[in-house]
């Protein structure tokens, strides 16, 4: 960990229950500026729920989420420091690729259309989809949809990007193109938190891996300590199943 860097995210004693089921148990971790965190673990371990709590798609039980030094308490401005990419893309089907990307800057930031289009075209170029700008999402592949979704999130200029299993609903041959875009963001030193089942990718891209099981953080360490002789039996068992 590079402690000279700014602390982007600080999660303290986060707990969450669905009715009587504790889905997150005393979660503590920090993320520094420019760090890439991969959250891995078995299904139902609370990975996605944790991510969704960070961006207020789920209410937290107790605990505190501090983003760039400010406690998350429903303030719109703080929320906008984070962007999120979903497993199921969630593009707006009634809007073209370009319209998907310019929508939030125009509506939320009240940006001029011309300026928004400029930024959107730049981002679409970055994800390699500029030639699809006037196409509706139903006409492009899953991998392309997810790349548009990434561009759409980036258009709001977030400080932290959250990825919730970004490749899990993709055909295997389309996974690579999405991971390549995420990798590019990592290389640009963007702060990323990625929930993923792509072990190879996690190992390659992440600065740190958070391993979760039954609502707890089992390990929070550098990839090699997870993938080479993990200390915990749970991790070894999980990895054996994955690879």
């Amino acid at each position: 960990m590079n402690s000279a860097k700014m602390k982007m995210l600080d999660v303290r004693n986060l707990n969450k229950s669905f009715i009587n089921n504790k889905v997150l148990k005393n979660i503590n971790f920090t993320v520094n500026e420019g760090e890439v965190i991969a959250i891995i673990g078995p299904s139902g371990s609370g990975k996605s729920t944790l991510l969704r709590c960070l961006i207020e798609l789920e209410e937290i039980g107790d605990g505190e989420i501090i983003i760039e030094g400010i406690s998350l308490s429903g303030s719109e401005k703080i929320k906008r420091k984070m962007g999120m990419v979903f497993q199921s893309f969630n593009l707006f089907p009634h809007k073209t690729v370009l319209e998907n990307v310019i929508e939030a800057p125009m509506v939320v930031e009240k940006m001029e259309r011309k300026k928004a289009i400029e930024i959107a075209e730049e981002l679409l170029k970055k994800v390699g989809l500029l030639e699809k700008r006037d196409v509706y999402p139903s006409r492009i592949s899953g991998g392309q949809k997810q790349r548009v979704a990434i561009a759409r999130a980036l258009a709001m200029n977030p400080d932290i990007m959250l990825f919730d299993e970004p490749t899990s609903s993709l055909d295997p041959e389309l996974v690579g193109e999405v991971l390549a875009v995420i990798k590019e963001l990592a290389e640009e030193n963007m702060t990323l938190i990625i929930v993923t089942h792509e072990m190879g990718f996690a190992r390659e891209v992440a600065d740190r891996i958070i391993f979760m099981d039954v609502g707890e953080i089992v390990a929070n360490t550098i990839p090699d300590k997870i993938f080479i002789n993990p200390e915990q039996e749970r991790i070894a068992t999980f990895l054996k199943k994955m690879i």
């Binding site: 961006i55 207020e56 798609l57 719109e76 929320k79 906008r80 984070m82 962007g83 999120m84 979903f86 969630n90 593009l91 707006f92 929508e103 939030a104 509506v107 939320v108 930031e109 759409r152 999130a153 709001m156």
Partner: peptide, 8 residues
Amino acid sequence: EAAKVLGM
């Protein structure tokens, strides 16, 4: 959810 995380 997509609209919400975009700040709408």
